[in-house]
Simulated assay, not measured.
Amino acid sequence: MYGPKSYIQHRKFHDCDLRSQPFGIPDGQIIVGAQQQYWIWKPGGPDRFGLNTIAYYQTFFDRTLELKMGYLRNVNEFAGTLVGGSAGASVLAPSANILYQAGMSNNAAPTPAMNVKFNFDDRLYNKVSLQRSLSPDGQQAEITENPTGLNWRTANAGILLVYEIGYKNKAAPGVPETWLRAGAGFNNSSYKNLQYPQQPRGNANSTYYVAADRQLWQSDLEGSAYRGIYGGFSVMYAPPDLNRVSQYYELRLYAKGLFDSRPTDQIAIVATNTVWSNYAVDAALAEGNLVHRDSTAILGTYTAHLAPGIYASVGLAYINNPTSITHTRETGHALNLLVSTSIFF
């Protein structure tokens, strides 16, 4: 057995959103935001200061149709990857980076996009996005080439088309919250082929996902129906010849407002399994590296809502095979202490 390692990971980021209602346009909104992100634990991500979002949101036909366009963060718009749907509570949650590989924009890398959502009723919906893809070489390459987020395009990046259909009802007294969704993304960017690395670029990419969340118990039927215990899962897939991560599985159990004295805090336990591309693994093995074909993790977090827009999270994570595909005998598994503060204003 490899000896466990302990790390302290700390990330600071600040989001600043300015939201206003356009004069004379009912049920519309303009959103402008900037982000400053700094990592003490450098492998966690690149530092940046730049655009977070510039968006115009408008509804039509008594909110049957919703339009959002501008520089968007589609990872917050599709798939529901945030544990419990809370930005503050999700800071330490494992991220399903299959969506990033497929080119989906996010907080650190917004891109031009137009999203259209059609609500069949107050629960059933479908949603489509036409988005400029992230760099097919990954998030690091996108931010390095476009640190401010203002560039209209980056090298080899094309168009990402995302479609999602879902069913979502909000919690009410005696009615548990339920959210079911499934979606797919198709990207015409110029990707490298992992099975035939000597071939020139030009391969289109795709990704697919299903997810579900359900409120299992309501702790405050007469007051705040959202409070209680929830469970959920996510399954994601991407072709192994174009993506280093080919499969992602997640099980989650979380509680909102479990304590009367802390009605907006959240507790989460998340288990994940990430499966690497068999082509990428075989190529690393042929080079004589120590490799693994998947990585599993279990994470527990407590997120405290300290004040409006201010969250603090502490968590503990055990990761089996914490590195990406290749590893050394000293990096078989890790025990991570995670501490995070989030400020939204």
Rank of each mutant, 00 (worst) to 15 (best):
A212H: 02
Y209V: 01
Q139W: 09
P200C: 11
L194C: 12
P94A: 06
A109I: 02
P94Q: 07
A109F: 05
S206W: 13
A171D: 02
K117I: 06
V83W: 07
G158S: 00
R132T: 10
W179A: 12
L160M: 13
K117V: 00
A141C: 06
A108V: 05
V210S: 09
N156D: 15
Q199Y: 08
L160V: 04
R123Y: 11
P173C: 03
L124G: 01
L99K: 06
R153Y: 09
T154V: 13
T144G: 05
L161I: 11
Y167A: 00
N156E: 13
L124F: 15
T154R: 11
N151E: 12
N156R: 15
N188G: 08
D137V: 03
L82H: 03
G174W: 03
D220P: 01
S133R: 03
G88T: 00
S133M: 07
R181M: 11
A211Y: 02
L124N: 11
S206Y: 09
Y125S: 08
G88V: 00
V83L: 11
D121F: 04
N205M: 08
I159Y: 14
S189P: 05
V162L: 15
G183M: 08
M114C: 11
Y100Q: 13
E164R: 14
Q131Y: 02
G138V: 11
N205D: 15
S129R: 02
G84M: 09
V175G: 08
Q139F: 09
V83A: 06
R153M: 14
A155S: 15
K170R: 04
D220L: 12
I165S: 15
A96H: 08
N106A: 05
D137H: 07
K168V: 10
G149L: 13
P136N: 02
D220W: 01
T207W: 02
Y125L: 00
N188M: 05
A182Y: 07
I165F: 09
N193K: 10
E177Q: 12
K127C: 00
A212P: 03
A211M: 06
G185S: 15
I143A: 09
T154Q: 08
P200D: 04
T111D: 01
N119W: 08
N193V: 14
V116D: 00
L99F: 14
N107M: 12
L161F: 13
I143L: 05
A141T: 09
A89K: 02
A102Y: 05
A157K: 04
L130A: 15
G158W: 03
V116L: 13
